[in-house]
Write a protein that binds this DNA or RNA. Structure first.
Length: 229
DNA sequence: GCGACAG
DNA sequence: ATCTTGTCGC
């Protein structure tokens, strides 16, 4: 486990944070298909908080994309670097997530984030931000539709419906388990939407949420427990 | 102006 | 995100 400090140039206000998003947004790559599902490695990242002690813990868990076996994992702990503000989640999570990714003993391959990428008020959510900062292919898989709208997809696993910001498709509601609430998939960096959905399906053989985020969620909670007095 | 709002 | 017991089901 590694410890992190908030970077000295980290935005201190919401206005500064939005300006950073507006500047970095132009560096997102949307015209690559991304790695094929079921091959290579897939990494889940997630974060847990203890606002009481101002502590944040992040985890990165690398899975073999074919077997979904854990290949490597790393954690990082730090101070909370930004309050939770809808639309600015990345500034709360990224420093610690970057530290966890850096601590991995192997390349992460595709990174699956717990939240959104393109589906964001300024089209630059957590997954997009992490992708631009690392250069890695990233996608976002969220549990809630945020401010977006969608029609319920068919009940069968694999059914999808557009996730809409007005008439613009910013992601997809994807049914990963028959009859269970869908997850909300959006593109981060260097992956297209069809492929992002295909990866999400490959990562959900049994549960609604991807194995990557399930593993990372369990690990960051454990890291937080062990780091908190 | 008011409410809603990824995690 | 987090606060939180038991409970129903495989």
């Amino acid at each position: 486990m590694t410890t992190v400090r908030t970077p000295p140039d980290w935005p201190a206000t919401e206005e500064q944070a939005r300006a950073v998003q507006d500047e970095l947004r132009g560096r997102v790559v949307l015209d690559e298909p991304g790695p094929p599902p079921g091959a290579g490695r897939v990494t889940g990242v997630d974060v847990a908080y203890d606002d009481e002690h101002d502590v944040v813990a992040a985890a990165a868990v690398v899975l073999d994309a074919a077997s979904l076996d854990v290949v490597a994992e790393a954690t990082a702990v730090g101070r909370i670097s930004f309050p939770y503000v809808p639309g600015l989640l990345a500034f709360r999570e990224i420093p610690t997530v970057l530290a966890a990714l850096d601590a991995l003993p192997c390349p992460p391959g595709l990174v699956v984030c717990d939240g959104y990428g393109l589906a964001h008020p300024r089209r630059f959510g957590l997954a997009s931000h992490l992708g631009v900062l690392t250069g890695l292919p990233t996608i976002g898989v969220a549990k809630n539709p945020f401010t977006f709208t969608y029609d319920d997809p068919g009940l069968a696993r694999g059914s999808t419906a557009p996730l809409l910001a007005g008439t613009e498709e910013v992601g997809r509601a994807l049914r990963t388990r028959a009859g269970v609430k869908p997850v909300f998939v959006s593109v981060g960096h260097r992956v297209d939407l069809d492929n992002a959905c295909a990866h999400t399906l490959a990562l959900t053989p049994e549960y609604r949420l991807p194995e990557t985020t399930r593993r990372a969620d369990a690990l960051c909670r454990r890291a937080l427990r062990e780091a908190t007095p």
